[in-house]
Amino acid sequence: MKVAIIKYNAGNVKSVEIALERLGISPVLTDDPAEILSSDKIIFPGVGEASSAMEYLKNRKLDTVILNATQPFLGICLGMQLMCLHSAENDTVCLGIFQQNVMQFDVNKIHLKSPQIGWNNIYNLKTSLFKGVAENSYCYFVHGYFATLGEQTIATSNYGLEYSSALNHKNYFGVQFHPEKSADTGSKIIQNFLES
């Protein structure tokens, strides 16, 4: 199986690469459109800031590549947020695959620290991505922005308010948490994705 990890200017993708290696897959880290679109699965990771990431994707036409993907596609963390309609992080228009908006945690409303860092549970799990994953399983999150709830929500979490911890539209999946760092639950989710 050929798995492409989209290479761009957002954060530490090494953890994702190594997580796949732990599962016996040797992924290709690439920003080459042909290489990405010829792979069996595409992973779109990312940690960082939304507007500079979107600009980078557009400059390299990677936005079109992402929108043209027909194979199973998984966005992680910032990757998932960039697949939404719009992000409040520097008022960024995103890819619009998911019909959600990305908002910032308002510490005055949630009375919690932001960013959220650590293990939180996921519930109302839907789709094959969570096959064999128990309701309220814990995953590892690091984020100061969140996607709102909607029809495409396939997992929910609560951090002062309820938000989408995973989204799905057709072949596209997005997870707010880091499956590559979420112990056995995360490994199971990655495996489910690879089998989708």
Binding site: K14, S15, R22, E180, K181, S182, D184, G186, S187
Partner: peptide, 28 residues
Amino acid sequence: IAHKINIPFTVGGGISSVDDVRLLLDAG
């Protein structure tokens, strides 16, 4: 370590530059 464990981990000790950090993050 990165190839063996699937939870987050932090590495410290004597880190004093961007290059030090890049080496460790690239290692996982």
